[in-house]
């Protein structure tokens, strides 16, 4: 194997042809920004859809089910293309023009919305599972006390269900974090895109991909550690997770 190892490539600022170190940093930054904003969308839309899946109203349940099936059964990459290339064409002229010409950083916004709505279908399933894990007696008791349906969700079901589903929500976020790399296909310069660019400029692929992989692992490790702490804090006393009976 003939290969020129040169770890300096990943630390380059002004001494190389390009400031590769800054490229990596900005890539990591965009990966984090896109992931966190997409997660906010996934969490809010996912909660609404998840609640709708447990609703009394049959129509509402069907719509929510349709949403989950639709977003789950089309590959993320295809959805990226649909949002970026197809949606602006199908919208009325003014809106399409705005998306294509006037919106600053269109690929970043598209990636955030697309990732968010894609993962909302997964979050919805977790929220639904969390709500269904709560014994029906609690809903009935709350209704008997005179709470409205909305209040039952707001004060009884959702607070408990969010505490139950912290672990699956964490792995959902990790999924968003990793899937943010798909955004490179529409031109988002996140971590994977930047490292491919550096690989093509310098041919020092082992160094640069190692750095990218380690950065992904590091963020994963940090998130998992933080969430394990959160999980312990919000754990519901008396459940198996607590070790009680």
């Amino acid at each position: 194997m003939k290969y020129n190892w040169n770890w300096n490539v990943v630390l380059c600022r002004s001494e190389c042809a390009q400031p590769y170190f800054d490229w990596i940093l900005s890539g990591l930054g965009w990966t984090l920004v896109v992931s966190v904003m997409a997660w906010l969308i996934a969490f809010s839309v996912g909660s609404v859809v998840g609640v709708a899946k447990t609703a009394e109203n049959r129509g509402l349940r069907l719509v929510a089910k349709g949403y989950v099936e639709l977003f789950r059964n089309i590959p993320l990459l295809v959805q990226m293309f649909l949002w970026f290339y197809v949606v602006p064409e199908l919208l009325p002229k003014v809106a399409g023009h705005f998306l294509k010409r006037e919106l600053p950083l269109p690929e970043y916004w598209t990636a955030i919305v697309c990732l968010g709505l894609y993962h909302a279908s997964r979050t919805a399933e977790q929220v639904r599972a969390g709500i269904e894990a709560i014994p029906r007696g609690q809903t009935l008791a709350a209704l008997a006390l005179g709470l409205t349906r909305g209040q039952v969700y707001r004060y009884v079901l959702l607070p408990v269900s969010y505490r139950i589903i912290v672990p699956p929500l964490t792995s959902d976020f990790m999924g968003i974090f990793k899937n943010s790399s798909v955004a490179l296909t529409i031109g988002v310069l996140e971590l994977t895109a930047q490292s491919r660019q550096i690989a093509e400029y310098t041919f020092n692929i082992f160094e640069i991909f190692t750095v990218a992989t380690v950065l992904y692992m590091l963020v994963t490790l940090i998130v998992v550690t933080v969430m394990r702490y959160v999980e312990k804090k919000v754990r519901i006393p008396g459940t198996i997770a607590m070790g009680g009976s």
Partner: peptide
């Protein structure tokens, strides 16, 4: 398993696409 599960699939694809030709020559 941990390493592959923490890495995005696209990055794994790039790894093998660029690295295998160098390793095998």
């Amino acid at each position: 398993v941990d390493a592959f599960r923490a890495t995005p699939l696209i990055l794994v694809i790039f790894w093998f696409y660029f690295a295998v030709p160098i390793v095998t020559g």
